[in-house]
């Protein structure tokens, strides 16, 4: 195997971990509440701008921007739940798309009005630099994002499977009425789920900002990949999103290298449709 091919594979896996990172919040809400958040990409975008503002105002790197973005986004998530999502859920499934798509436009163009259309970027040396190990070049910012992706996935998974908060949240998602009889308040649990999911999205955005460009429309670029990642992994399956993210990153890298950059997404979509054909519940979703 040539050194370049190894580089392609390593790069693809790191990219995949980042896809998994910014999809984890989406899968949580999707699985918990059967709600599809069309504003997800724009949540990531807001977190990226927060990272930029933290850098410009406080001179802070990710150690400052990640917690600030996580807390801010968690707040936005909880507000979005109480002000919009809770009411929209009374309507048909399509109302969620309507409401969250409106929210996406609102966030995107409010940011546009506040920050302008210009592209921004954080300095490259904010997170280490680039290291060469056995001829493979690793960008510290991407490695950090990859490691955090694993930690966030593990954290969310443990939260859902090993804590009482997690079991309460799952109880609500299984049967809200029964959960209520057991003394669990469904809307609190769902608000907490939105807070956690948006907080994880905040972490993702602040980290992605360290190596990606920042613009008001960047969420659009990222959102479709997040949808495909989550559906491929299986709605609600946090480990599924990780596996799917890694798979998509790897396939994108390899197909771009072997077949060409314009075909990489074609390969991903064909694979996605193919998987759904045989496993309509995604790779790791419950049937």
């Amino acid at each position: 195997m040539s050194a370049t091919l190894v580089q392609v594979i390593v790069g693809g896996l790191l990219l995949g971990a980042i896809y998994a990172l910014f999809s984890s919040g989406l899968t949580l809400i999707w699985g918990m509440m059967n709600v599809v958040n069309f504003a997800h990409g724009d949540f990531v975008m807001v977190a990226m701008y927060i990272a930029y503002v933290v850098y410009v105002l406080l001179g802070g790197g990710p150690l400052a921007s990640v917690p600030i973005a996580a807390v801010s986004l968690a707040t936005i998530g909880i507000l979005a739940y109480f002000l919009l999502v809770r009411h929209v859920m009374r309507g048909p499934m399509i109302a969620q798309i309507l409401g969250t798509f409106g929210l996406a436009l609102l966030l995107r163009y409010s940011m546009f009005g506040a920050a302008g259309a210009n592209f921004l970027s954080l300095p490259d040396n904010l997170v280490g630099g680039t290291y060469e190990i056995f001829g493979i070049r690793l960008q510290a910012s991407r490695v950090v994002a990859g490691i955090v992706a694993l930690l966030v996935t593990a954290g969310l998974h443990l939260l859902l499977t090993r804590t009482s908060l997690g079991s309460k949240m799952l109880a609500v998602s299984e049967d809200a009425t029964a959960a209520q009889l057991m003394g669990i308040r469904p809307d609190y649990m769902q608000a907490i789920a939105w807070g956690i999911a948006a907080g994880a999205t905040g972490i993702a955005g602040a980290l992605i900002a360290t190596f990606f460009y920042i613009s008001p429309t960047v969420g659009e670029t990222l959102a479709i990949i997040a949808f495909v990642t989550v559906a491929l992994g299986g709605f609600g399956s946090v480990p599924g999103a990780l596996v799917a993210g890694l798979l998509i990153g790897l396939i994108e890298s390899l197909s771009a290298y072997w077949i060409g950059g314009v075909w990489k997404d074609v390969v991903v979509y064909i694979l996605f449709i193919f998987v759904l054909w045989f496993r309509p519940q995604g790779l790791m979703g419950k049937s």
């Binding site: 580089q7 693809g12 659009e220 771009a256 290298y257 060409g260 990489k264």
Partner: peptide
């Protein structure tokens, strides 16, 4: 000639093709 999709999320493979 290395064409790629505009507004892409990642260009590592294209850069490696270029390097080759």
């Amino acid at each position: 000639v290395i064409p790629y999709s505009a507004n892409t999320t990642d260009v590592q493979s294209q850069v490696l093709q270029l390097k080759d």
